[in-house]
Amino acid sequence: MALILFLHGPSSSGKSTLAAAIREASDRPYLHLSIDHLRDSGAWEPSAYPDWKTARPRFFSGFHRAIAGFADAGNDLIVEHILDTPGWHAELQALLASHNVMFIGLLAPLATLEARETARGDRPAGSAAQDFTHVHNGLSYDVSLDSTQPLKTCVETILSMTKNPPMPSRFFAEANLF
């Protein structure tokens, strides 16, 4: 049974930075899965998806199935995601039901998110603010982390929890997302 560290938070909350730091500090090999990796590969080029609104549901359904496929094959994972669309959480709950999931919420003040978004320069302006207003609504996490705290502190918190992951994970709790 795979262990999945599911990092959830708004755009610019530090999911990628935290994932890289966990991988570096852990003795356990984790695969890091993120939509950003697909975006950076060119998968979101206008030529790949000229009608993104129509393609988006099947794109994310494929991403969700890929997460499950890697886990089903026995890989421990760090997954970055924003559950911002009706049905995604339920779909992932079903796909990942046979695995240990640690549901990790990343929290940060809006001003911090906006400053990070501006510094990054690779997101549409306002993405962080849009996510901030609703991304955590109706969800309960196994652990919530303030991503303005030292990275080392966040990594140590998560790695200490991997020794005895919460069972069952709050990831599988019923959520009132929308």
Rank of each mutant, 00 (worst) to 15 (best):
H8I: 02
E156V: 06
Q149P: 00
R123K: 13
G138N: 01
P109F: 09
R123S: 12
A119G: 08
D27Q: 14
T157M: 01
P10D: 00
T133W: 06
L177K: 12
A129G: 13
A19D: 01
C154A: 13
L107H: 14
E24Q: 15
T157G: 01
T157Y: 03
M161R: 10
G9K: 00
S26H: 12
L7H: 03
R23N: 13
L31D: 07
E80D: 12
H81S: 13
F178K: 10
L18S: 04
L106I: 05
L113Y: 02
S127P: 07
A55F: 07
H32L: 04
S98L: 12
V143D: 01
S61T: 13
L96H: 04
S98N: 15
S13Q: 00
A2E: 06
N164E: 11
L110F: 07
S61D: 15
G138I: 00
H89K: 11
R123G: 08
L145N: 00
V79I: 10
R65L: 08
G126I: 09
K163E: 11
H64K: 11
H32V: 01
A68N: 04
A129T: 12
E24W: 06
F59H: 07
T85S: 07
E117G: 07
Q130I: 12
K152T: 12
R120M: 08
V79M: 05
T157A: 04
T157W: 05
A71Y: 03
W44M: 15
V143K: 03
W52I: 13
A97D: 12
P166F: 05
A108V: 01
N176W: 06
A73C: 06
M161Y: 02
Q130T: 14
T162P: 09
L92N: 08
L113P: 01
D76N: 10
M102P: 04
D146Q: 09
P109K: 07
F70V: 04
P150S: 08
E80V: 10
P10T: 00
S140K: 03
G121I: 09
A173G: 10
G121T: 09
T54N: 13
K15R: 05
L33Y: 03
H37S: 12
R116L: 03
